Amino acid sequence: MAAPGLIHGSLGESCLHLCVDMQRLFAPGGPWPVPWAEKVLPAIEELVASHPRQTLFTRFVPAARPGAGPGTWARYYNRWAKVTLSNIDPSLVELMPSLARFVPPAKLIDKRVYSPWTEGRLDAMLNGSKVDTLVITGGETDVCVLATVLGAIDRGFRVVVVTDAVCSSADPTHDALMELYRSRFSEQVEAASTAEVLDSWH
């Protein structure tokens, strides 16, 4: 198992904070509440406030109506019909208010699947940039964060998962994924706290 912390050195101008799906959709009182989201929000706010121009938010946008989407996504949205755009207040797709205030200068990208890489917009944004390191926060640790991390690894980015700024609605799988990030991906994923990231991001 890799030692915790930023074992590959400090962070700098080539670093981007990629905050995954911190939306009203997943806030307490939303249709898909993630109880821990409220608890990690202050850490995420602190990271964004320190580097707003080097922050990119993703938003998960549900299908327009029940049964829409390719393949098994159609079945998924029959199961979660109440969360399709035709059945929710569209403002629930927006970022949580305390984060939305940072856009701009922070950037925003929408996606319709778990991974922000699949639809090509994130690749297009980063191609030709100096970004070689992604600091990843948000939710959920075992779904959209996982898809984000794996895509970043495949593309050769240095990946830093911020341990106190990711969350899930399921504690056992959150804990299992944090162990997975630290052990199975020890050469490609660093797990560091918000304080450690802020202290070493210059």
Rank of each mutant, 00 (worst) to 15 (best):
A2P: 08
A3G: 00
L6Q: 13
H8Y: 12
H8W: 10
G9P: 10
L11V: 07
E13H: 03
S14K: 13
D21G: 11
P28T: 02
V34H: 11
V34N: 12
E38Y: 00
L41F: 06
A49Q: 12
R53M: 05
L56Q: 05
P70I: 06
T72V: 10
T72F: 11
W73F: 14
A81G: 13
N87P: 02
I88Q: 09
D89E: 14
L92E: 08
L95Q: 07
A100K: 12
A100V: 05
R101C: 11
L108M: 13
I109C: 05
D110Q: 05
R112L: 02
R112E: 12
S115C: 02
P116G: 06
R121E: 15
L122P: 02
A124V: 00
M125Q: 10
L134E: 07
L134V: 05
D142K: 03
C144E: 08
L146P: 00
A147D: 14
I153R: 02
R155Y: 04
V160Q: 06
V161M: 06
H174M: 06
L177Q: 10
E179C: 00
L180A: 12
S183R: 13
S186N: 09
E187H: 12
E190Q: 14
A191F: 00
A192H: 03
S193Q: 12
T194Q: 03
E196M: 01
V197R: 05
D199M: 00
W201H: 05
H202L: 06
